[in-house]
Design a protein around this nucleic acid. Structure first.
Length: 421
RNA sequence: GUGGGUGUGGCUCAGUUGGUUAGAGCACUGGGUUGUGGCCCCAGAGGUCAAGGGUUCGAGUCCCUUCACUCACCCCA
């Protein structure tokens, strides 16, 4: 019986993984330029980390976590997101003691038990970016800029950064109250989901896609009329700095993030060509989270980017698929040639070239086909005839030009020279 | 959790009102070219038609059940 991968968990095969590699290379390069440093965190955490960090009443915690008991009876959870873990690590290792703004990034799989669809899987990969230790709008700006930079470096088309401010524990309660008052009158026009949202988290009604709810939401009280002076000034700072950097943003007062820890600045990067799941990245400020998870009262801000969604966009705009590189294919005919060829391959690789080898004995015609399939730029042909004459043939696969090279001490050097030339 | 769509060689799909040996293109292997790839020509290999049950003289085709994939809702990256 054939064993298949389980639902919502996909293999990423080499023809696709080359693009993933390109994205990760760009990640290291762009985030590195902002001074972000990489952190690696475990896949498993204590369940209560997410309960406390993400919020007990969020969908993620209520119904989407992979939670189980280990052999000691402890409740563990496969991480559904990275922020809680990174905050935990930040607190656990006292990274706040360094006296600087700590800027961290991470790349890895996350797990949520949901029905899979386009751009949403049970094991999915996120790039996660977090910064701790400042509430200054310049940090919000740098964080958003790093996201924008990253996407534009990858040539992602049609990116908009939507931003909003959710206020803080000082001003949000008044807004909650106003929203509740507004929607309570119209409770019979709300969808069933929004009726329960009204009690639990009225902010979420603003995000509802049901048309009647959406229409009501358009006329609902605006968060920006309720922001306290601190939050108002903070948000104005962020907006004006982003303008200075020429980052295209769109204010979206209806944007509400789905995790409980967000305060003040929130943002999303949206792309047109994604279908229903159109957010490539999302994040915001979480000034109370470090304290809530047992650390000092240190502010933080960050975002998460969906790798699969990003890859989807990049595949859409790419005409020809990327392929893994191959500088040289060594085609050998006969045992003596194979013996010589395998050591030559080793020497070429030490020069930093990608070199493939004819492991299976085949006809030259078959070997040439193989070279073609490997996408080899050059093929070295080593046969009994050539070896007897102490030479090999180097063929440029694109131009079909062939050069005969003598087998001597300078051979490796000559080959790499031709590969570069 | 709810709804829609789809399951036929490795891949993309045809397959007529049910009718006897289930097809094509691409990919693969070999040959045409005894040691030279992409194009062309020829040949070959590869299928319990998702699984199980039912109707029928006869089922890839009709009915039922299950499973898988997929899109959307919900939610999120």
């Amino acid at each position: 019986m054939e064993i298949r991968s389980i639902r919502g968990m996909n293999d990423i095969l080499p023809e696709d993984s080359i693009l993933w590699k390109q994205v990760r290379d760009t990640m290291h390069y762009v985030l590195g330029s902002y001074g972000f440093r990489e952190i690696l965190i475990p896949v498993l955490e204590e369940t209560r980390l997410f309960q406390r960090g993400i919020g007990e009443t969020t969908d993620i915690v209520e119904k989407e976590m992979y939670t189980f008991e280990d052999k000691s009876g402890q409740s563990l959870t496969l991480r559904p997101e990275a922020t809680a873990s990174i905050v935990r690590a930040y607190v656990q290792h006292h990274l706040y003691a360094s006296g600087k703004v700590e800027k961290l990034y991470f790349w890895g799989p996350m797990f949520r038990y949901e029905r899979p669809q386009k751009g949403r899987y049970r094991q999915f990969y996120q790039i996660d970016v977090e910064a701790f230790g400042s509430n200054d709008p310049t940090l919000d700006t740098d964080i958003i800029a790093s996201l924008y930079d990253f996407l534009t470096t990858l040539n992602v088309p049609g990116v908009t950064i939507e931003i909003n401010s959710l206020g803080c524990p000082n001003c949000r309660p008044a807004y909650h109250k106003a929203l509740k008052a507004y929607f309570s009158d119209k409770i019979d026009k709300l969808c069933p989901d929004c009726k329960s949202r009204l009690v639990r988290n009225p902010l979420r009604i603003l995000d509802c896609k049901v048309e009647t709810c959406h229409e009501l939401a358009l006329k609902a009280p605006n968060i920006h009329e309720f922001l306290c002076d601190t939050c108002k000034n903070h948000f104005q700072g962020v907006q004006s700095y982003l303008e200075d950097l020429h980052i295209p943003t769109r204010l979206n007062p209806m944007m509400v993030r789905g995790l409980d820890y967000y305060v003040q600045t929130t943002f999303e990067a949206v792309s047109e060509n994604l279908g229903a799941q159109n957010a490539v990245a999302g994040g915001g400020r979480y000034d109370g989270l470090v304290k809530q998870l047992g650390g000092p009262d240190i502010p933080g801000i960050g975002y998460a980017m969906g790798m699969e969604r990003l890859i989807m966009i990049l595949q859409d705009i790419r005409k020809e698929p990327l392929s893994w590189p191959c500088d040289l294919f060594i085609a050998t005919l006969g045992d003596k040639a194979r013996r010589y060829g395998i050591t030559l391959a080793s020497k070429i690789r030490k020069e930093g070239k990608v070199c493939e080898f004819s492991y299976e004995p085949k006809s030259l015609k078959a070997l040439m086909k193989l070279a073609n399939r490997l996408n080899a730029r050059f093929t070295a042909i080593i046969g009994e005839d050539e070896l007897q004459r102490k030479e090999i043939v180097l063929r440029n696969m694109a131009t079909r030009e062939q050069t005969t090279l003598p087998v001597d001490d300078t051979l490796t050097e000559k080959i790499t020279g031709l590969l570069d030339g």
